[in-house]
């Protein structure tokens, strides 16, 4: 088989959009393998449609373990389609498909999960906190427009440049993700100081002053703490959580249980309140 080149730009775009279906068949035996085949289905049908045996064979071959980032997968499917359209068999495209899986999962996850999502999540959650009713809608818009743009960018990249781009791409990506991390860390630290709520309601009564019966016989501990540093307790508690996760390897369950117990006990003895 020589290059047939039957696929048009719209086939590439369609396959790029079908990246949303990557996890429609997610399962614990081959992860996104089934979804990969599903994404490629219309394009494969156009390529091999007149030969049901061939179509079934190619789809079947593509149902094998796959697990990468859904936002960057258009890069892989575009390369795959370009190669298939030029008459390459699956065994010849398989190597590149599998080679890209890991790196793109790493780059994609760090970009979408650790930069874009936390950034929008914190910004729009704090807008919602200020009672801006449409904040959730804006969150969805910002998130999805960004990810859709990435998908189309990746799809076009894959089609045009093929394999040699991956190294240059990852260098640029890490630069972008470093810059995004700076914004992310700044915002998250700021929000930790604002949105973690811990208030000391305990007041310290000096016995000497109390004996005199003065009205100002109590020392407001929270006011004292605020003078030392604002939001001191929330920041310290966040640091404690950080320490327990990073150095002690605590799971979220243990942290949640610890927090709930601390909250209940300290409010029961009237140290913390709302």
């Amino acid at each position: 088989m020589t290059g047939s080149n039957v696929l048009t730009n719209s086939d590439y775009h369609k396959t790029t959009l079908r990246a949303y279906f990557l996890q429609n068949g997610f399962n614990y035996s081959n992860y996104q393998g089934l979804g990969y085949s599903l994404i490629m289905y219309p394009a494969f049908k156009k390529l091999y449609g007149n030969d049901p045996d061939k179509l079934a064979e190619v789809l079947s071959e593509n149902i094998e373990f796959y697990n990468t980032n859904p936002n960057l997968i258009p890069f892989i499917t575009s390369i795959h389609l370009a190669m298939a359209d030029n008459g390459l068999e699956y065994k010849e495209t398989r190597g590149i498909k599998m080679a890209l899986m890991g790196p793109l999962a790493g780059i994609g996850d760090s970009l979408s999960q650790f930069c874009i999502a936390p950034l929008f999540s914190t910004i729009f959650a704090s807008l919602a906190m200020n009672n801006i009713a449409l904040a959730p809608v804006f969150f969805l818009l910002a998130e999805n427009i960004t990810l859709l743009a990435i998908k189309f960018g990746m799809g076009a990249y894959g089609k045009r440049l093929g394999t040699s781009m991956i190294e240059k791409l990852s260098a640029k990506m890490s630069q972008i993700s470093d810059a995004a991390s700076m914004v992310g860390v700044t915002v998250i630290a700021g929000l930790a100081a604002t949105f973690v709520k811990m208030k000391v309601t305990l007041t310290y009564a000096s016995s000497a002053k109390a004996a005199k019966g003065a009205a100002t016989s109590t020392v407001d501990i929270q006011a004292l703490l605020d003078k030392v540093a604002p939001a001191l307790l929330p920041v310290l508690y966040t640091l404690l959580m950080y320490y327990l996760i990073k150095k002690r390897g605590w799971t979220t369950y243990k942290l949640v249980i610890l927090t709930v117990v601390i909250g209940i006990v300290l409010s029961l003895v009237h140290v913390l309140g709302v």
């Binding site: 811990m198 966040t238 927090t259 709930v260 909250g263 209940i264 006990v265 300290l266 709302v274």
Partner: peptide, 11 residues
Amino acid sequence: GLNVAGGMLPA
């Protein structure tokens, strides 16, 4: 108590 804990959970 749960209220207090809820305020701390975002940490």
